[in-house]
């Protein structure tokens, strides 16, 4: 897709911000705002990849992929670019992996207003430094995503939520083979099992799980802890077992070490020397 017009919008100087659908915080206030182009360029189911404008709503991509029996590991809501820029996974992370593993190639507009390509179009690729990893989670501070190629996966034959009452999550967790999601609120455990219907049923029965309507409602706030800490959480929470994402009450996090913070600053200075991209947004 031609990103010339988008690059022109971003321009070469002056503060500029980018917004998708505003579902993840949206634009920086009082700064000139641009939008990435939307639209699905192509889906290659047999290659397990799809290419779209970063402004494409996640829902649009999800629907188009479902039509060819596939899906993408992005959380619901907002735009594809926004989901990647924020980089926070949905509750299927245990099975699907991190959002950062979804992005194979990005064409973005740099602080200098140039269209830059990072990564490559194949699932396997170690050609050069992997800037896609940096872009995911960078919240638009290193470059504005224009067009992305993402990795897709076949939809499973069966997908069901189950639950059980347990005061401790790890014993049950250990008996499940590659569950897609395991949630625990201190009293109840929910598990999402996928695959062949008979395998799903047998696993659930063997683990003493009962069919459930779906995951529990998630408390608003969201943070992450080492997964081994999940067993000792207190208060009101729903924790992702085996992952460490906690929705709700969680202990305060330690901040990045000075060396890491300094390295982060240097990366930002290199890629956006004047600090014009999403000014005021601090990653770190």
């Amino acid at each position: 897709m031609d990103l010339g017009a988008f690059a022109e919008d971003v321009g070469v100087s002056g503060p500029v911000t980018i917004a998708g659908l505003g579902s993840r915080g949206g634009a920086v206030a009082d700064v000139r705002c641009v939008h990435a182009p939307g639209g699905i360029e192509w889906i290659q189911a047999d290659e397990m990849i799809a290419c779209c404008g970063a402004g494409t709503p996640v829902a649009e991509l999800v629907d188009a992929l479902a039509a060819v029996g596939q899906r993408v590991a992005l959380p619901d809501g907002g735009t594809v670019g926004g989901a990647l820029a924020v980089g926070r996974a949905g509750i299927r992370r245990l099975g699907d992996g991190a959002v950062r593993n979804t992005l194979l190639q990005a064409r973005y507009v740099s602080a200098a207003g140039e269209v830059v390509k990072a990564g490559g179009p194949t699932v396997k690729n170690v050609s050069g430094f992997d800037l896609c990893r940096l872009l995911v989670g960078s919240r638009g501070t290193l470059g504005f995503l224009g067009e992305v190629i993402v990795r897709t996966r076949p939809l499973p034959a069966a997908s069901h939520w189950f639950s059980a009452t347990v005061g401790e999550p790890f014993a049950l967790f250990a008996t499940l083979h590659r569950p897609v999601s395991v949630l625990w609120d201190g009293a109840t455990l929910w598990a999402l099992l996928e695959g062949h219907a008979a395998d799903v049923a047998e696993q659930a029965a063997a683990a003493g799980l009962h069919p459930a309507d779906g995951p529990p409602p998630l408390p608003q706030s969201r943070t992450s802890v080492a997964p081994s800490c999940v067993g000792s959480l207190t208060g009101r929470f729903v924790a992702e077992v085996g992952v460490g994402v906690v929705h709700g009450d969680a202990p305060p996090r330690s901040s990045a070490s000075p060396a890491v913070a300094e390295l982060g600053r240097r990366v930002k200075d290199e890629l956006d020397p004047t600090g014009r991209l999403n000014p005021g947004v601090h990653v770190g």
Binding site: G87, R93, V245, A256
Partner: peptide, 29 residues
Amino acid sequence: VLPDGTLAMLGGEEPEPDGYDLRGVFVGS
């Protein structure tokens, strides 16, 4: 060990550490 000799932990056991994914860009460097 960064090229200036300082020691830094990139990434962590927790799934979503703050900051840029320096771990990710280090892999393959």
